[in-house]
């Protein structure tokens, strides 16, 4: 029977990012950064993956803005922007820029990761880098 890692990848991700930094898995054999978290490297199938804190720097690859219809008599619903960010370390992830109005987000915008949410439900969101504001 295959031996199990110390913790399941989803649980390990939550534990690592609880310090407020973005952590990714790195493959000991091929050196690639891996996201979403896994038990094996999707580039070379190695089982040797280690968690490392990363810069959190990235670039908006694409975005979309959901326009939501308001129900009669209810407050107007805000448009909701969703992005894909290419991290400088390689992987791409879906995320949001909670502090930026949807119309101000651009493809190519430089962003930096921030960890948001409650214990065990933390997610990676992004802020614009100062030079890009």
């Amino acid at each position: 029977m295959a031996s199990l890692p110390k913790a399941g990848p989803d649980k390990a991700f939550q534990e690592h990012v609880s310090d407020g930094r973005l952590w990714l898995q790195y493959c000991d054999d091929c050196g690639e950064a891996v996201f979403m978290p896994r038990v094996l490297c999707p580039h070379c199938s190695s089982l040797s993956l280690d968690w490392r804190p990363v810069s959190g720097n990235g670039t908006v690859h694409t975005l979309t803005v959901l326009h939501q219809r308001s129900k009669p008599g209810q407050p107007e619903r805000q448009n909701h922007a969703i992005v894909l960010v290419d991290l400088d370390e390689g992987p791409r992830m879906m995320s949001r820029l909670p502090e930026v109005a949807p119309e101000d987000i651009r493809i190519g915008m430089r962003v930096k990761a921030r960890i948001e949410g409650k214990d065990g439900e933390r997610a990676v969101v992004f802020d614009p880098q100062e030079s890009d504001q």
Partner: peptide
């Protein structure tokens, strides 16, 4: 799992 927290609307997003 890692897309759901950002509230995409599938499949349109």
């Amino acid at each position: 799992t890692y897309e759901v927290p950002h509230k995409p609307r599938y499949p349109m997003t």
